[in-house]
């Protein structure tokens, strides 16, 4: 599913990731631990497509696609998800609208019709019950 090979990442000419190799298969849970400043969050940001970081070497394949040249939104459409440590709220955008827009972007990418507000709320209630 995910294959990281010899990933090197720099920010302002400072090398933060110095050759990461990691393979994640479907069904697996991987934990990444390490002291402060070891590069944990940098790795997450680079996978999601944060442009602050410069990838100087290596490759990242996600479902067989090289995602390093893909925009963050296209990575998300392919099924990659990053939760933020400290999420920011966009004033005027409710969580429900935010989620529905995200879901509809993914549906559009898969060639499905957008989901209506009422169907979305119904789906949300069902998921909540199942959880």
């Amino acid at each position: 599913m995910l294959s990281i090979k010899n990933l090197h990442v720099k920010i302002d000419d400072k090398e933060i990731l110095r050759g990461i190799d990691l393979k994640v298969k479907p069904g697996e849970v991987h934990a990444i631990m390490g002291p402060n400043g070891s590069g944990k969050s940098t790795l997450a940001s680079v996978l999601a497509g944060n442009e602050m970081f410069e990838v100087s070497e290596g490759e990242v394949l996600f479902n067989g696609h090289d995602i390093l040249d893909m925009a963050p939104e296209d990575r998300a459409r392919e099924g990659l998800f990053l939760s933020f440590q400290y999420p920011v709220e966009i004033p005027g955008v409710s969580m429900v609208n935010f989620l529905r827009t995200s879901l509809n972007e993914i549906r559009k990418y898969r060639g499905q019709d957008p989901i209506s507000a009422s169907d979305f709320l119904k789906l949300m209630r069902e998921k909540k019950k199942a959880g």
């Binding site: 995910l2 090398e15 990691l22 849970v29 991987h30 934990a31 990444i32 631990m33 002291p35 070891s38």
Partner: peptide, 27 residues
């Protein structure tokens, strides 16, 4: 699949990982 990035072992009491990787100095 899931990748959990964490400082502490506490979360891993509740979500049991298949693999644990230690990152240090970018490796």
């Amino acid at each position: 699949a899931t990748i959990l990035i964490t400082h502490y072992q506490r979360l891993l009491e509740y979500i049991i990982p298949d693999y644990v990787h230690v990152l240090y100095h970018g490796r």
